[in-house]
Structure formats: C-alpha cells, structure tokens
Design a protein around this nucleic acid. Structure first.
Lengths: 121, 121
DNA sequence: CAGTTAAGATTACAGGTGTAATCTTAACTT
DNA sequence: AAGTTAAGATTACACCTGTAATCTTAACTG
C-alpha cells in the first residue's frame, strides 16, 4: 500500500506507462539503454508486483505487466515530495529557481506567461 | 566525495545553513520539531562528517559543526536531479505542473511574470 | 583526586535498493 | 516422451538509511 517506487523502478514504470501490457522480455528490451542485466530487471518487476505498483495478466508461462498507478498521480506525488523536501513547500522559490537556472526559449517563456495569465483567471 | 545527503541529513544541513558553527546539542535543540532522539541526531552528524558534507572545529571536548557545501549548490543539484528523474529534463513541463497544481496568489503570479520578463531580457 | 557527565565513537539491527545468480518448473522442441 | 529453455521465484549480498543503545574517555564537580 504505502510502498514507494525506487529510482530504478521508476524507469520500469516509464516503460509500462509508455505501452502495456508488456512481457518482461519486452520491458528488458525497452530498457537496454539502462544497460541492466535481464535478471536485474526481472528483480525489479518482481518487487514492483509485491509493492502493488504494477500488475500482470498471464499468457502461457509468462506474465504481461501493466501499471497499477497513473503517471499523472505519480508525478504529482513526487513533485509534492520534492517541493516539501527541498523547498519546504515554497512553490514560488521552486519556480524561481528553475526559471532562473535553466535556459528557456522565448517560446517557452511565452507559453509559461500564458499559463500564469490563465491561473490569474 | 560522491556520497550524498539523505533526507534526514538534509534537515541537519538546513539547521547548519541557518547558523553555524553549532554544537551537537544546539543542533538537537533546533531539530526538536523533528522529534528525533539525541542519539539519532548524533548519528547523522557522525555520518555527515564521514561523508564530508559537514566539518567541525573542536571546542574542549565537543565539536562545533559547520556545512561544507553551499545551500545554493545543493538545491541546484537536487533540482537538476529531480528534473531529470521525473520530467526527463523538460523544464517547461515541470514548471507547468507546479503552476497548474499549486495555488498561487496574485502576488506570486505577478512576481513570476516579472521573472519571466527578466529572462526574456 | 575520585566520581559523574556527557561528547563523540562504535556497534546494532531491520528494511530498502542495486545488482545479480541459482532454483523450480511449466512449456516448447525434436 | 525426454530433453532443453526460459519464465518467474527464491536467495544472495553489500551498502544506505532510520533509529538508537552501548562503549570510551576527556572534562567537569565536589
């Protein structure tokens, strides 16, 4: 229930959010950039099942895995955790930090201003 | 060298960034909201020394601790890590997520727009 | 000086994580 | 049917972390 997704497991989640259900072999393939041993990926899948963050359907002797949690929801939680942990909940400071330390194109800046206007209602 | 600051240790860092050098007892006091046993805080200080993220001066039989890393730098690293991990480096998406999911006051929105304008140069 | 404190050092211990190797066994092959 | 594969299950193991308790010993107290 309360068990969370580790950093490595998150890569697996991303794969399944992209497309599912997938066999472990397919997950392994889509993660080859990570350069993990197949056994390692299997371990992650196993643990994630136990944690309940993914589920599976059986297909013959193999499992087809799928996510049990929404990406949006997950991002939300991670974001809030980060906000609290690093910025003590101060969104303004967080936003300022990113705006000032990351190069943003004119298009992106405009887009963000539009967003702020929309928020202003 | 490469060892990082854990979540609990970060609370200790915050205290020392606020004011330093401090004795372990002073650190414990400033962390009473955390409701940690004194021994626990001492453990953190000890580990942080070993990790090299804080240092100390001796004063009689006790140590006075101080940070070895800058808060700004730390925030930067944490922020970049989070950006990459959760948003795959897409700052725009990150900013949009926070702007849209957090309640921001008119003042904050105005301030942020000013920031964006400044970025626009 | 002898006893008591209390500071830091060391040890403890379980749960999570990264990183696999080995075990079991159902399914595929010949 | 017998052998081979390969999928998931189990086991391994070290390091990190949270959470302290115990050990040593220098400093303070009377």
């Amino acid at each position: 229930m309360s068990n969370r997704v580790s950093e490595s497991e998150q890569f697996v989640m991303e794969v399944l959010w992209q497309e599912s259900p997938l066999s472990s072999q397919e997950v392994v393939e889509r993660l080859k950039a990570q350069d993990w041993n197949e056994k390692t990926v299997k371990t992650f899948l196993n643990r994630m099942i136990k944690k309940g963050v993914i589920g599976f359907e059986t297909q013959g002797r193999k499992y087809l895995y799928y996510p049990n949690i929404e990406r949006e929801e997950f991002i939300q939680q991670e974001s809030n955790g980060f906000l609290d942990k690093v910025f003590k909940g101060n969104v303004k400071e967080l936003l300022a930090t990113f705006v000032q330390n990351k190069q943003l194109s004119k298009q992106e800046l405009d887009y963000l201003k539009t967003l702020l206007d929309k928020e202003q209602g």
